[in-house]
Design a protein around this nucleic acid. Structure first.
Lengths: 332, 332
DNA sequence: GCCTATGATGAAAGCGCTTTCATTTATAGC
DNA sequence: GCTATAAATGAAAGCGCTTTCATCATAGGC
């Protein structure tokens, strides 16, 4: 691989000048630029990005930490973030935190040791305090899907509470009054918020909460299966099932088929997230849209603006969910 | 951030010695090692990976190019590859090629310009010739899910033909004789191979091919929908539907529900890939397992062995598919 | 034509590490 | 105790770039 030195020799100019034409960082006479470009072409020169990083103290790499690389949710996120950075010649290093505090911390350290210019973090288990400390320590990062007051300006979130509210309100507006709720793990913030929204909608319609119609699942498909079995075994009476995510909704639908229960005639089901398999269920799942790609895009733009000082469109910190009505819900 | 120089000063040794304890690259007296480690701890020293890369000509980064970052298929692949490299302190840079020759080429160049030590490529559009040239050019890469004879030692593939064979044989063994086939785009190699396997199974059972029962789809859900509509509109007679991937199978199932057609009573459907949503369909999809995670793992090990000279378990180049029987197929 | 302001360019000093080679120190053999 | 050998360490030269600072060329103002 040719180096900048060889290019400078061939073009008959100094290293500095070649660097200038590469980075367009200072005016260069047209004739000189042409000479340099010709030399670069002749040698098939490509700058060594590692050397550039060392000298400029910029790696042009952004670390992304998500809980899982697989699963329908994060793929879209990564996809959008990658596209956004790729367009400006920066690259993305990925790591998985697996919803475990220790692994999340270790992953963050790993990414930092890689000299990332910035991090985009989707962490669930690490403490608010840790994140605050990270920010104080001068680490450039933006937080996705989590709100930490002390570093509010770095948080990009979905209004989960409103989403929970919309889901249950949708059922209420269809006339349902006996509404079972399958929550995610209550230690997870989004699970708590969605549930709070659920209660809010119930209250608004004057429906009192029935503890027998609450089940804490695990955000996995099996959680939905167990939830439905639990409600049925307890002989609970309900015409609608609100699930805190699509995986559990899908599990519940599967379990319902096995009973069998006619959907949506005997039971209306709504999910949350609008992951891309949600229309593969039968009946197609009504759900709450989680604009994860947009959120990823916004996170990327946050980095572009705050770390790379690029002017960009207005940043948006809170995204609004909305109901996607398909076939799994119905008037009672 | 502390530098190696400060550590050496504090420990009262030379740069070289500190480097030796960091990399464990030459024997260091125990007492010295302890001093150095104490100094590193005191300063909270972490080596600058960019400087390491520049000096050692090793970036410890591996570029991964897949068609899409989203979608059920690639997530698992990335997940496994990341885990494998992470365990040995290396990181993964990702890029998407979007099944477009130009973008694939550009992505490869992008990754190379990032000084990746090796590339793991899942490319569909770029030519065999280009790949051969890449190999000749000294680029270290391994190819996933594609076989190019000239660089066979770099290819890790699934036996797609055998998979296609298994899918159709499964139907034949259930007693089906009128079997419709929904192919992927025939310019894609795996689509061609799977179809070849289909024909092989038909031949083995003495069933002659019926052109009216072939449809070329796009590997997308809509392709499956259109396929079923096409066959029905043509008034074709068939009791089984073999789809070249799960997306199309899912589309076909959706379309069948709309007719409505009782599944699997009136029609047996089989997919291919065993992506993670395939059991969300109703009835749960019988399919051919594509061990994508294992393939990813093998690709990572190929790199570990051939690029980083690590001793590792035996490498395997061809993986075998197998039938995953669920509820969408049934004896006739 | 001379002076100044400005635009172009080059020399050279890093960036933080690895690695070679020479030197020093410890170990063993007698 | 002395030499031959091995083990441990240090000095210094890069790795390929960016960036500061000084210098040189050019053009306009009078």
């Amino acid at each position: 691989m040719a180096t900048i030195y060889e290019v400078s020799r061939l073009a008959g100019v100094s290293l500095a000048t070649v660097s200038r034409v590469i980075n367009n960082t200072a005016p260069v006479r047209e004739a000189t630029r042409v000479k340099v470009e010709a030399a670069m072409n002749e040698l098939g020169y490509r700058p060594n990005s590692v050397a550039q990083s060392l000298a400029s103290n910029r790696s042009n790499s952004i670390g992304i930490l998500v809980s899982e690389l697989s699963g329908p949710f994060y793929g879209e996120l990564l996809s959008r973030i990658e596209a956004e950075f790729r367009a400006v010649g920066k690259h993305v290093i990925i790591a998985a935190g697996h919803s475990d505090a220790e692994m999340e911390r270790e992953s963050i350290e790993f990414l930092r040791s890689r000299n990332c210019d910035a991090l985009i973090l989707h962490v669930e288990s690490v403490s608010d305090n840790y994140l605050r400390g990270l920010a104080d320590g001068g680490c450039a990062f933006v937080l996705i899907n989590r709100y930490v007051r002390a570093i509010a300006e770095r948080c990009i979130t979905l209004d989960n509470r409103h989403g929970g509210y919309l889901a249950t309100r949708h059922m209420l507006q269809l006339g349902h009054r006996e509404i079972a709720y399958v929550s995610g793990p209550m230690w997870k913030n989004d699970a708590k918020e969605r549930y709070a929204g659920h209660l809010e909608a119930l209250a608004e319609f004057g429906v009192s909460e029935n503890k027998a119609l609450f089940f804490e699942g695990d955000f996995q498909e099996t959680g939905g299966v167990r939830a439905l079995q639990h409600f049925l075994a307890a002989d609970a009476s309900f015409s609608a099932l609100v699930c805190a995510n699509d995986e559990m909704a899908s599990g519940a639908i599967t379990a319902a088929h096995d009973i069998p229960l006619e959907l949506p005639d005997q039971l209306s089901v709504i999910g949350f997230d609008n992951v891309n398999f949600s229309h593969y269920t039968y009946p197609k799942l009504t759900t709450i849209d989680y604009p994860i790609a947009e959120i990823g895009q916004m996170a990327a733009r946050w980095v572009l603006k705050n770390v790379y000082s690029q002017t960009t469109t207005e940043l948006k910190a809170i995204f609004e969910p909305r109901v996607i009505e398909r076939d799994s819900t119905q008037k009672i």
